[in-house]
């Protein structure tokens, strides 16, 4: 299961992911990101402290977010080691700011 909490604070978007992102739950993430009014967004931070699992379907969705906000700084915070490992393997740790 996945739950997503989005906090919008002026031009800053914080997305907290709790649970698992896989082929079943990834549409929730995509829909949630699509529902955000993107005109004001400058900074995006994904809080992954409680994200237990992600695979290529979720990584693909995050790359999609990067594509939608080419001018934004996208941060990824508090990754668990298994999640961080996939970011390293796929080179995503180079396109996002890791905190």
């Amino acid at each position: 299961m996945l739950s997503i909490v989005v906090n919008e604070d002026k031009d800053r978007l914080k997305v907290t992911l709790v649970g698992e992102v896989d082929i079943y739950t990834v549409d929730m993430l995509k829909d949630k990101m699509d529902s955000v009014d993107s005109t004001e967004v400058r900074d995006i931070i994904f809080d992954m402290e409680k994200l237990d699992y992600i695979d290529s379907t979720g990584l693909g969705a995050l790359i999609g977010v990067k594509g939608k906000y080419p001018g934004s700084v996208i941060k990824v915070a508090n990754m668990k080691s298994n999640v961080a490992r996939l970011f390293d393997i796929t080179g995503l740790s180079k396109i996002f700011v890791i905190e």
């Binding site: 695979d55 290529s56 969705a61 990067k66 796929t90 396109i95």
Partner: peptide, 20 residues
Amino acid sequence: APDLKNPKESGLGLYIIKTL
């Protein structure tokens, strides 16, 4: 193999499997 410097939304799965 995926171009890791220029990530795309798909094409990572088999590469991840082979790495792990």
